[in-house]
Computed example of a mutant assay.
Amino acid sequence: MNFASDNIVGASAPVLQAIVEANAGAMAAYGNDEISKRVRTRFNEIFEREVSVFFVTTGTAANALALSSAVPPYGLCVCHREAHIIDDECGAPEFFMHGAKLAGLPGVGAKLRAEDVAAYLESLPKAVKQMPPKALSISQVSEGGMVYGLDELSALGGVCREHGLSFHMDGARFANALVSLGCTPAEMTWKQGVDILSFGATKNGGLMAEAIVVFKPELAEALDYRSKRAGQIISKGRLAASQFEGYFADDHWLANARHANRMAALLSAGLLQVPGVRLGWPSQANEVFPIIPKALDRALKAAGILYHGWTELSLPETERVADHEVLIRLVTSWATREEDVRRLLELASSEVGRQAAE
């Protein structure tokens, strides 16, 4: 049973079928085909306005290129200190921003609060020695599996406007956040001030389906050139774009995300019934971060259950992991089976019961 991430499962059947159908015949290259044009129109419909869309193959490429359009080489991008862009992308954002820096701030569950961002921005000296802040980047869902509410997004958007920052959203788990909030894509992005979005589908049923969606036109001006220099202008662009046709058809993307979130909710609720187990923070999408006894951790791993340990940096001030405990991350996906979730819960419950009886 593998709960290591939501990118460990393959692509969904509708996505694969769309690729097969797009494969037939000859079409214009480099994204000038009819499929790519249809998908760009579909993005306009989904976001209820005209947007610029750039297809890329990885979330790292999406984030790095998106930020490169918003932050000059002498600038600063503010993010959470455990954000994917600062922890897991091997310096790609800084590389494509040509030397600009990332400034990581703390926050429970890997979320940023508007008041903390504002306080940090106001504390920066206004001198040529200091790199000026040019963008704010948040992850929706956060690296802690938490979801920014619309009021929180609006507040962060307000801080960006007040301080002249572009507002970037890393939406690697965009659909999971969307169904968690029960809102529209427009309500979760540009209506709250988001200027540019890394729209991820790979973790929710795509093969390698990522896109940069731009709401602020001036940020799109050079992205074609930046994408080409990064090797992200895809020759057979129709095969990349076609994934989104299968993904969006019949709201397949939303159904996938609802299933993943539902499996995480089942897992979260079940773990809370196991003595000695608690959550580091609430589970709001498709990731669960329980604090469990080390003996249980060993037993689960011995049973072949795969997952990752996690850092304690984003725990609330009132929460601590004791010496006999460990914080772990469990991730569910569109393909997670309910029987696997229940099997994990049964193993956890029986193991804790066995240890208590000894």
Rank of each mutant, 00 (worst) to 15 (best):
K111E: 01
M146T: 01
L279M: 15
I8S: 12
P275N: 11
S142M: 05
V147S: 07
K216Y: 06
G276K: 08
K101Q: 09
I291P: 03
R113Q: 15
P293V: 02
Y307F: 05
I234R: 06
M188R: 05
A83I: 06
A255V: 10
S139L: 03
D340V: 03
E338Q: 15
D33I: 09
A177C: 05
A155E: 11
L124C: 02
G171D: 04
V147A: 05
C90E: 13
F244I: 02
T60C: 00
R354K: 14
V108A: 03
G145K: 10
E245C: 06
P293H: 10
V159C: 01
E152R: 10
A62I: 07
A230W: 12
V213C: 04
K129I: 04
A103R: 14
K37F: 09
L16D: 07
P125C: 06
N32K: 14
C160H: 05
F174H: 11
R298G: 10
R354V: 05
V147M: 05
P275T: 12
A114L: 01
A4G: 07
I292G: 09
G149Y: 02
V331E: 12
V341W: 07
I233P: 00
S349H: 15
S68E: 03
S350C: 10
E338K: 14
A222N: 15
R329S: 05
F43Q: 10
T332S: 02
E319V: 15
A11E: 13
R173V: 00
G280N: 09
A103C: 10
D170G: 08
M188E: 06
S314Y: 09
N44D: 12
S350V: 10
E122H: 13
E338L: 08
H259E: 02
R258N: 12
V331R: 11
L67D: 00
S242V: 07
I85S: 07
P132Y: 12
Y247D: 05
M131A: 11
K301H: 12
R226T: 07
W334V: 06
A241T: 01
R354Q: 12
K37A: 14
E221W: 04
V214S: 01
E210W: 14
E82D: 11
A28I: 07
R320F: 10
L330E: 01
A110S: 15
R81Q: 09
R262C: 04
E122K: 15
